[in-house]
Computed example of a mutant assay.
Amino acid sequence: MKRVMTSMAALAIGAGAAHAGGVERSTQSVGILFEQGNYAEFSVGGFNPDVSGTYPLNNSNSGDMAPGYGTVSLGYKQQLNDQWDLAVIFDQPVGAKVNYPAGATGNPLADYPIAGSKASIKSSAVTALVRYKMPNNVSVYGGLRSESVQGHVTLPALGYSMSTSDETDFGYVVGAAWEKPEIAARVALTYNSKIEHEFSVTENGSPSAPFSTTVPESVNLEFQTGIAKDTLVMGSVRWVHWKQFDITPLGYQMATSGDSLVDYANNTITYNIGLGRRFTDQWSGAIMFGYEKHQGGTVGNLGPTDGYKSVSFAASYQATDNIKITGGLRYVDIGDAKTTLPPGVQTDFSGNDGWGAGLRVGVSF
């Protein structure tokens, strides 16, 4: 039960990737450290958002500017002895895929002002963790994360384009957990450090000044406990310091009198809570609810969302003694947002949502 729920809760929360902060793709869970014995897993996910807004001056619609995307993650956990565990995790912590459809009328005065704009952020990370089990069901863990990030943007309305180098830099992870196995209880608190990247940049086809971006620090609180026979309550609280995340190339800053391509005025706290239930020796299920507060104010045109509510369903099938297959489906009600376009006009992004799905295969040995 405990082993099944660890995987199922993580997939239910992350099915189709998170939408926190607009660019988050991984919840950076350390749940794999608590799998029993030796364990490996492979996960794939996809998310298909539908995000569009209107520009009041000409009543034009942006069209769906948020294409669907996929994610992949891998994990391996080795029990070294009764006290020490080792885990290696590959994931994609941040990402973005923006594509405003090209103007439909051919008349710039009638089309959405930034029609044809495109942007992307790609990342990958490898995290190595060790866990030490102390007396009284307490354990401590930590490790290093290697993270690679690159980005591209094209803004036809400004006659602007930018491409960065692919940069790899390092951060760290530290945490502690308490467990009570007889009731399947566990509380784990994890700190993920910020990682600073300095990019070489090409703007409008020519080399430009390097700039730095910080993938922000975060704190995860993950918990579960049995509340009845074969039934668990489980969830997480995740804080991310999104004010640290800023993309401001020099050429763009000069062309826009000091604006940033991407920045965030607020940090985020994301909540997830749900129930898991084992129905038979082979089948278990879970339902999870997610919430991230609507902050208000205006947001950037490359990330026109503000908070969300979600519901996720997951099912796990113990195919053999050592193989389990977990699937998840997630619906996200994407929070309404307002952006600003010239000449200082507010656009309205509302009524947006998205569907996500994920599949994980875990092998114990």
Rank of each mutant, 00 (worst) to 15 (best):
234 M>L: 15
325 I>P: 03
319 A>K: 07
322 N>G: 01
305 T>Q: 10
321 D>C: 10
316 S>P: 01
297 G>H: 02
268 T>D: 13
321 D>S: 14
293 K>C: 08
314 A>P: 01
266 N>C: 06
321 D>L: 04
320 T>Y: 02
260 S>C: 12
313 F>G: 09
331 Y>S: 01
331 Y>H: 08
250 L>M: 14
322 N>S: 13
296 G>K: 03
323 I>V: 12
254 M>F: 10
307 G>A: 06
236 S>V: 01
277 R>T: 06
307 G>C: 05
288 M>T: 02
295 Q>S: 11
299 V>Q: 13
328 G>C: 01
314 A>E: 00
277 R>Q: 13
241 H>D: 15
240 V>W: 00
282 Q>L: 07
274 G>Y: 02
291 Y>R: 10
278 R>K: 14
312 S>D: 06
319 A>Y: 13
333 D>G: 06
232 L>N: 10
310 S>K: 00
265 A>P: 00
236 S>N: 12
330 R>Y: 05
299 V>E: 10
303 G>Q: 11
282 Q>S: 10
315 A>C: 03
247 I>Y: 02
281 D>M: 07
321 D>T: 09
321 D>W: 03
291 Y>N: 10
268 T>Q: 13
244 Q>N: 13
276 G>H: 08
263 D>H: 14
237 V>C: 07
305 T>F: 08
242 W>F: 15
312 S>Q: 07
241 H>N: 15
268 T>P: 02
310 S>A: 11
256 T>H: 06
237 V>L: 15
284 S>E: 03
299 V>W: 08
275 L>T: 09
262 V>A: 15
241 H>T: 04
284 S>N: 06
239 W>M: 09
234 M>Q: 12
282 Q>E: 12
315 A>Q: 07
246 D>F: 07
331 Y>A: 03
263 D>C: 05
327 G>K: 03
323 I>P: 06
291 Y>D: 12
323 I>H: 10
273 I>M: 15
326 T>A: 04
311 V>M: 11
305 T>R: 11
284 S>M: 01
290 G>C: 11
300 G>W: 07
326 T>P: 02
243 K>V: 07
235 G>Y: 10
281 D>F: 05
308 Y>D: 08
272 N>D: 09
294 H>W: 09
264 Y>P: 07
310 S>L: 04
266 N>D: 14
255 A>S: 14
276 G>L: 02
275 L>Q: 03
294 H>P: 08
328 G>K: 00
244 Q>C: 08
326 T>W: 04
305 T>L: 09
234 M>E: 13
259 D>R: 13
269 I>V: 15
276 G>D: 06
329 L>K: 05
332 V>M: 12
276 G>I: 03
315 A>L: 02
290 G>E: 01
253 Q>C: 07
274 G>H: 00
267 N>P: 06
317 Y>A: 03
248 T>P: 05
293 K>Q: 15
308 Y>N: 12
266 N>R: 08
245 F>C: 08
309 K>R: 10
328 G>P: 05
255 A>K: 10
246 D>C: 11
261 L>H: 06
247 I>V: 15
259 D>C: 00
311 V>N: 02
263 D>T: 09
292 E>V: 06
289 F>N: 00
311 V>K: 01
263 D>N: 14
